[in-house]
């Protein structure tokens, strides 16, 4: 009994030490995660001279409006154009990905067809295929058919999103019972209508998660737009950001930080609002996968 109590006591003591270690490490990591973004945001408000003198400061400067003005007179970096293009592409991509992935997943889940197994195997096989591998052929084909600089070439491939199909299928298996579908059939609903009006609502949580990832993935994609988009009016946000690496901005540190902030802030804001869903989405996606 006594020894047990001692053990318990010492355990609490070690628990406190343990807990302290956890908090210290986590706080250091949190600072590490936030620090670059804080420097970015603060420096966006400071003048080049201030940054030159001391590149790090936690006190915002007063040059935000000046930096905005300088940045907006440089016509290369057009965050609004980039944002517009990225929005169009990412939103369309998201809708196509989520809708058609659900449809395809439903086709695999709900029906028995001869080539189903082969088809599912194919999806598993190409699930992880990066754009790098198909890029040369894709680019040359687009080039020959004069399809470079065409946003559709970035949007339409989203119809075939194997990873999302896989996820959706896994979700359907847990969430949808064929009874519901059967009863809809008995009520005389067509298959397509059944899918749209009964199956889709059931899939909403999975669709939301996948929509976030599809959107972020498309928004952050740099490789394909860089290869396909030649005209500045078609540049997406990441390509616009890459322009900040260019010569023109090297004189204006404040502007570089401001430009970076403008590209990162929308994401940070959306993230802060949706973080609960995103974090649980990451967890969900991995366990399901």
């Amino acid at each position: 009994m006594a020894s047990n109590q001692v053990a318990l006591h010492s355990k609490t003591k070690s628990d406190i030490a343990f807990k302290t270690t956890i908090y210290i490490v986590c706080t250091i990591l949190a600072i590490l995660s936030l620090f670059p973004f804080v420097v970015m945001l603060v420096n966006a408000t400071r003048s080049t001279a201030q940054i030159q003198a001391h590149a790090v400061s936690l006190i915002p400067g007063s040059s935000l409006s000046k930096n905005i003005k300088i940045l907006s007179t440089k016509k290369t970096f057009q965050p609004l154009v980039g944002m517009k293009n990225s929005l169009i592409i990412s939103a369309s991509t998201t809708i196509l990905t989520v809708y058609f992935a659900s449809l395809t997943a439903y086709a695999i889940f709900a029906y028995d067809w001869k080539l189903k197994k082969a088809f599912f195997g194919l999806i598993m096989g190409i699930m992880m295929l990066p754009g790098t591998v198909t890029m040369i052929g894709f680019y040359r084909a687009c080039y020959q058919f004069h399809l470079t600089d065409n946003k559709l070439m970035l949007i339409l491939p989203a119809i075939a999103a194997p990873m999302t199909v896989f996820f959706m299928k896994q979700y359907l298996e847990g969430a949808l019972s064929m009874d519901i579908v059967e009863s809809a059939r008995i009520d005389g609903a067509g298959e397509f209508r059944t899918f749209n009006s009964i199956v889709l609502p059931i899939m909403k949580p999975a669709m939301a998660t996948q929509a976030i990832f599809a959107f972020v993935g498309s928004w952050n994609n740099y490789f394909m737009p860089r290869i396909l988009m030649n005209k500045q009016k078609n540049y997406t946000m990441p390509i616009m950001v890459a322009l900040l690496n260019g010569d023109i901005y090297k004189t204006e540190f404040g502007c570089i930080y401001l430009g970076l902030s403008m590209t990162a802030l929308p994401l940070i804001i959306i993230y802060l609002f949706l973080s609960k869903y995103i974090v649980s989405g990451v967890a969900l996606g991995s366990v399901k996968g």
């Binding site: 905005i68 802030l265 802060l272 609002f273």
Partner: peptide
Amino acid sequence: KKIVASILCFTLCAGMIAGCDDKKDT
């Protein structure tokens, strides 16, 4: 979190609006 987000959002919008005006001119 939401407060931070809102503040950032406001800053961004203000920046954008200011940026917009200039942009229109150019």
